[in-house]
């Protein structure tokens, strides 16, 4: 009974402990203490900026900045969170004199969600298909194609912005250019996320044994069926991680969005955050509360998918 509880905390060490001589016990304990000190120091460094932003969000003195270092500032309140969640954004209105035409957090959130989901779906669906071809088929132009994707990985997003602007401007959907729509933005982000998606998925597909597909083919499945029914389910970790990364791109990108979108009704969370940054007077409490609320979905997704991260990142699972 006791041993069970101890094992829960200390793992396999419990069973070995009794067989150790005192000298060995001491060295294990000493080593554990040093390790813990090191890990705690790292933890402190990791958490410091997070705690700082949290304490600013709790500070009621919006513009004036803190004078000392405290986790819970005097007069701490959740007021700024309430303000961010429920008040209209006066900076982002179609008609500045009418509050009801201004954006709200929910509205911005919905726009961000649409763009990010669009980006994730576009890049994973098309990326998986292309990655499968690179992984399984020996075809004319394979090497060149692979090299091409790696080179595209190197193109900075900033580099494609101007030509993309003029290009998407020229394509009209109904009466407005594709550039000013969320769909246009999602496609633009997807093209940026695709090289990584293809690279990562190809690496993962390479690690899946071909025997299962061959068995499926013998059983009378077509190549497409073998791909959809056998390879895709086996690649859940890599697909999840690729989706997560593409989603993150869409969630926090604002440069392109800022350049492309015109109608405040379509603005995203990242753009609203950027619009809050004044040259001299950023409302820090509001800004911090907004940042925290905006980070939550990503952090939650990260934790849900955490067990996949190590295995789904094919950079690790390389085959010679």
């Amino acid at each position: 009974m006791w041993r069970k509880i101890l094992r829960l905390f200390f793992g396999p060490m419990v069973d070995e402990w009794e067989s150790w001589r005192p000298a060995k016990r001491w060295s294990v304990v000493l080593r554990q203490v040093l390790t813990q000190l090191f890990l705690l120091a790292v933890l402190l460094a990791v958490l410091f900026p997070v705690l700082w932003i949290l304490s600013m969000a709790l500070d009621p003195r919006d513009i004036s900045k803190p004078q000392d270092l405290r986790l819970i500032p005097p007069g701490a309140s959740l007021e700024s969170f309430r303000r961010v969640l429920f008040d209209p954004y006066r900076l982002l209105c179609t008609n500045p004199s009418d509050d009801s035409t201004c954006m709200t957090f929910i509205h911005l959130f919905w726009n961000s969600l649409q763009v990010s989901m669009g980006t994730a779906l576009f890049s994973v669906v098309t990326g998986a298909s292309a990655a499968y071809a690179f992984s399984r088929f020996r075809f004319i132009g394979r090497q060149a194609g692979m090299l091409g994707f790696i080179i595209l990985l190197m193109l900075p997003a900033v580099a494609t912005m101007v030509p993309l602007f003029t290009l998407l401007n020229a394509i009209k959907i109904g009466r407005e250019p594709l550039r000013t729509t969320l769909l246009g933005l999602a496609i633009a982000y997807a093209s940026g996320a695709l090289p990584f998606a293809i690279w990562n998925l190809k690496g993962y597909f390479d690690t899946i044994s071909k025997d299962l597909e061959e068995a499926a083919l013998i059983d009378g499945a077509g190549p497409l069926q073998a791909f959809v029914r056998v390879v895709i389910p086996l690649s859940a970790p890599a697909l999840a991680i690729t989706m997560l990364f593409s989603f993150m791109t869409g969630w926090s990108e604002f440069l392109m969005a800022w350049l492309f979108l015109e109608n405040p009704q379509r603005f995203t969370l990242a753009m609203a955050l950027q619009s809050m940054r004044g040259q001299f007077a950023t409302p820090w409490s509001t800004f911090s509360a907004f940042s925290i609320l905006m980070s939550i979905p990503i952090v939650v997704l990260f934790y849900i998918l955490q067990r996949y991260i190590v295995s789904g990142l094919a950079v690790g699972g390389v085959k010679g």
Binding site: V46, I53, M248, W251, S295, V299
Partner: peptide, 11 residues
């Protein structure tokens, strides 16, 4: 430890 990575880089 993955917090820095999970946080949107802009923030």
């Amino acid at each position: 430890y993955v917090i820095p990575w999970a946080m949107p880089p802009l923030i």
